[in-house]
Amino acid sequence: MDVHARVLTHERRGADVAVFTCRTGAPLPFRAGQHVSIECPYRPWQSRAYAIANAPRPDRVLEFHVRAVGAAGVSAALVRRLKPGDLLRLGGPRGTLTLDPLSRRDLVFVTGGTGLAPAKALIDELSRFNRTRWIHLFRGERHARDFYDRDGVDRLARRHPWLTVVRATSDEPDEHGEQAPISEVVARHGPWPDHDVYVFGSAAMVEATLRRLDLAGVPPARIRSDVVGPTPAPF
């Protein structure tokens, strides 16, 4: 099922990252943590898959986080050329990285880059009913300047006492003088044997994190992961 959506807002959050919102013309049933394919007028007949960064809303507004890779392609167009009023074509929702409705365990979200988007969607869903589960959000980037939605994430943490945020930079010391890959930081804050763990990021980051979680004894059945990147997603 394809639907059309009108772009409402578009913000550059750095040289190669944009956050934009759009409203679908018809209802698009989806669950937090899923993704859809997007085709824009600047790259007709091409599409890419992007995670929705919010849970379903009555006003049919969707938020997306996109990082441009190279000078061409769908991602570059969405970051550098998209503007309010443009019309997008969205494919049907896909993906299984959704909340387990039967679980009452605390949660760990490990994100890198625009892997923040599906984690924010899951936090958005939890904010509507959660009263007992602690959420630990780990964000990993190469440099401090790469935390493109820092203020928004900090506002979430202030609003929800059950949410804690830990950031790590791998290529330079952070504000505490520490420097480490996010996989090491997650392991250092563990162990996490009684948590549900979600990992969203690049292939290398996901692989490293899964390896550290395995060494820490986290049961594989409680781990869900997805590689976030500009991969083709045909309609």
Results as ranks from 00 to 15, higher is better:
Leu97Cys: 10
Thr231Ser: 15
Ala49Trp: 12
Ile52Lys: 02
Arg57Val: 11
Arg159Tyr: 05
Ala216Leu: 09
Ala77Ile: 09
Gly112Thr: 13
His143Leu: 15
Phe20Pro: 05
Glu125Met: 03
Val197Met: 10
Leu97Thr: 13
Pro191Ser: 05
Ala15Asp: 15
Thr169Pro: 00
Phe109Tyr: 15
Val185Cys: 01
Arg67Ser: 15
Val165Thr: 08
Arg211Cys: 08
Leu62Tyr: 13
Gly140Ser: 10
Arg6Val: 14
Pro191Ile: 02
Thr209Gly: 03
Thr209Ala: 05
Asp171Glu: 11
Arg57Asn: 11
Arg224Phe: 07
Glu184Leu: 11
Leu116Tyr: 04
Arg12Asp: 02
Trp192Pro: 02
Ser202Ile: 00
Tyr42Ala: 10
Ala71Glu: 15
Val110Thr: 13
Glu63Phe: 04
Leu137Ser: 08
Gly33Thr: 02
Arg43Thr: 15
Arg6Cys: 03
Ile52Ala: 12
Ala119Pro: 08
Leu210Val: 06
Pro58His: 11
Gly70His: 09
His160Gly: 00
His195Pro: 00
Pro58Asn: 07
Arg12Tyr: 04
Trp162Gly: 03
Met205Tyr: 07
Met1Tyr: 09
Met1Cys: 08
Arg12Gly: 05
Pro230Glu: 12
Ala208Ser: 14
Ala121Cys: 10
Val74Leu: 04
Ala221Met: 09
His35Gly: 04
Gln46Val: 06
Asp86Ser: 07
Ser225Phe: 11
Phe200Asn: 04
Ile123Lys: 01
Gly70Lys: 11
Asp149Ser: 07
Glu39Gln: 14
Ala18Leu: 01
Gly217Met: 02
Gln46Asp: 14
Thr96His: 13
Pro161Phe: 06
Gly73Gln: 07
Asp124Ser: 13
Gly140Leu: 10
Thr21Pro: 02
Ala203Thr: 11
Arg12Trp: 03
Arg131Thr: 14
Arg94Cys: 12
Val108Thr: 09
Thr231Trp: 15
Gly91Asp: 14
Val185Gln: 00
Arg145Leu: 08
Asp194Tyr: 07
Arg60Trp: 13
Ser37Lys: 04
Thr164Cys: 00
Ala51Cys: 14
Ile52His: 08
Leu210Tyr: 04
Val227Ala: 05
Ser127Met: 11
Val227Asn: 01
Val199Glu: 10
Arg13Cys: 15
Gln179Glu: 03
Ser202Trp: 00
Ala216Asn: 04
Leu97Ala: 09
Ala121Thr: 10
Val66Trp: 01
Glu63His: 09
Ile38Cys: 08
Arg23Ile: 13
Lys83His: 14
Arg48Gln: 14
Glu178Lys: 00
Ala15Asn: 11
Pro118Val: 12
Ser103Ala: 10
Leu28Ser: 06
Ala15Ser: 13
Gly73Ser: 06
Ala216Gln: 11
Ser127Pro: 12
Ala53His: 04
Leu116Trp: 06
Leu82Gly: 10
Asn54Lys: 06
Ala77Trp: 02
Pro56Ile: 10
